[in-house]
Design a protein around this nucleic acid. Sequence first.
DNA 1: CCGCCACTGACACAACTGTTTCAGTAGCGG
DNA 2: CCGCTACTGAAACAGTTGTGTCAGTGGCGG
Lengths: 211, 211
Amino acid sequence: MSQDPTTPSPRQIELLEAAYRYVLEHGLADLSLRPLAAAIGSSPRVLMFLFGNKDGLVRALLARARTDELAILDRLGQASHGTPIGLVPAVEQVWAWLAAEEHRRLLRLWVEAYAHSLVEPDGAWAGFARATVHDWLAVLAACQPPPERNTEAGAVRRTLALAVLRGALLDLLATGDRHRVTAAVRHQLALLPHPRGFGEHGGSRYSQNTT
Amino acid sequence: MSQDPTTPSPRQIELLEAAYRYVLEHGLADLSLRPLAAAIGSSPRVLMFLFGNKDGLVRALLARARTDELAILDRLGQASHGTPIGLVPAVEQVWAWLAAEEHRRLLRLWVEAYAHSLVEPDGAWAGFARATVHDWLAVLAACQPPPERNTEAGAVRRTLALAVLRGALLDLLATGDRHRVTAAVRHQLALLPHPRGFGEHGGSRYSQNTT
DNA sequence: CCGCCACTGACACAACTGTTTCAGTAGCGG
DNA sequence: CCGCTACTGAAACAGTTGTGTCAGTGGCGG
């Protein structure tokens, strides 16, 4: 019966990994058990057995995608275990991750899940959008130095930083124009530290060079 | 046979309007003909007759949604028939429109279509995301004064403006926290005009008052 | 009244959906 | 060898999907 709370069986994580690869290519929205099972060399019967039902599968897949997302969040978190690295370097690093070619499909999947969760606030997608906003805001907050972190202005600034990152991501996923979008993010990085000298680190070296 | 290029029949636009209202509530992703037809007092047979097939219906619905979207774009365009209003006032006006409660469902639909078009670049959704990015960038460009409009820096600045608007929209749709997100957009508005005195209009009155 | 036209209802079709039932098979501790 | 657990294949279930077929409406110009 494949209990959720217990340790997943080796076969379960093996099939989940295969299904995850499949979903990265084909999307989650019109996922169907039979084509999926055929593609990963399994059967609908087995998927039902291991994940309970389709909802369980989708939930597991979303959790799996979240694992990849948490990788960079953890990296930022580790970096800020000493003194926080500041909002601007955090945005810079996150954008480098978002703009990387090899994360394109994952992020496309992320956008799909986000949109779906906005339309259908129940079921496996419940609260995905809200949760992910909260997660990222928390991480950005952890990157801010304490005096700024706790002010309302600090909350506004990390909200803005998140908005820039996600808006730029939307643009990049649609147009693929990495040059223009990255330049826009860099432009923002040059803008951000200025107003009232909140203790960001350096903030001068965000020139126009490509890549 | 319901020809596309010809003038749509009155019955067609009447049913399209009803279907549009239905879709604003239920989303486009898992739209099904029978429930839709039942809800708007019609039948799948009639929808097939008027729109050819489901793809035609979806295409018509996306075009209908685009009409609503073009409303604000036209308003900005009209305003810039004389001298362009500048990027900052444009962003301000667009955000007021995006943040309005009565546009929430339309924008949710927009995000859904955007995401779907990223995953499935064929069929009725083809190029929706790319087209919408291009449209908005063009409108923002029309709001910039000519000297800035044609520079590469100008292109970067409107890309950034669009990113902020869309990122903020994503946040707003997920959390509904209009106060925080609007403050973030306002913060950006205060930031934007500064670097190099490109001919924006006024740029001082973007305080913290709520609404 | 006739014939055309836009439009519609009822129904069937094949394909596909998630899910279930029944019957296994392989491995392994006792 | 027995029984247990983990896993699997084949088939069927009832429901929904988009679409096609056939036979109509009602109105309106000639």
